[in-house]
């Protein structure tokens, strides 16, 4: 089966029913996509597929053949972070950080579609993401900061 991850073509020897999550982590090496529940309830495995935020634990790999999949590794790096990643560092918007990459992907899908989101838009965009450490208000601040930066681009 052939998929495209962060612009890179990948041929995968997995059963078609395999959740995309395991293919991304174990075949594509995208460890920033994380297992949290396997049932689409927590958002730690969020990726962007054709512009939409999608929980990769909930999608069989067969359903994404031919589609463009973006993971957190595809939006920026340690050396050249995406404005969202930079804003999360500037706001120190993480405690354990396990949920953060999924949240960044939800936020990116939002900001790509809506450059000036309201607080309600933000809450709606994050309604699939859980954070157990209680970092919510810093996370929201970081996304707002990134939105300002991205409008300048």
């Amino acid at each position: 089966m052939d998929i495209t991850v962060n612009g890179r073509f990948l041929s995968v020897a997995a059963d078609p029913e395999t959740p995309l999550l395991y293919v991304l982590r174990n075949d594509a090496g995208c460890k920033g996509v994380r297992f949290g529940c396997g049932t689409g309830h927590c958002g730690t495995c969020m990726v962007i597929i054709d512009g939409k935020a999608v929980q990769s634990c909930d999608v069989p790999v067969s359903a994404v053949a031919g589609k463009s999949i973006q993971t957190v590794e595809g939006i920026g790096t340690l050396e050249q972070p995406h404005p969202l990643q930079r804003a999360f560092v500037e706001e120190q918007a993480a405690q354990c950080g396990y949920c953060i990459t999924g949240i960044i992907m939800s936020a990116k899908a939002l900001l790509d579609a809506n450059k000036n989101p309201s607080d309600d838009d933000l809450k709606e965009a994050l309604s699939k993401n859980l954070c157990r450490c209680g970092t919510h208000q810093r996370i929201v601040r970081a996304i707002k900061r990134a939105a300002v930066e991205m409008r300048k681009l």
């Binding site: 994380r34 993971t71 957190v72 972070p81 990643q85 950080g97 396990y98 960044i104």
Partner: peptide, 12 residues
């Protein structure tokens, strides 16, 4: 630890 975590590096 935060820059590596938000970049999605394999830290855990």
């Amino acid at each position: 630890d935060i820059p590596r975590k938000v970049a999605g590096l394999p830290v855990y």
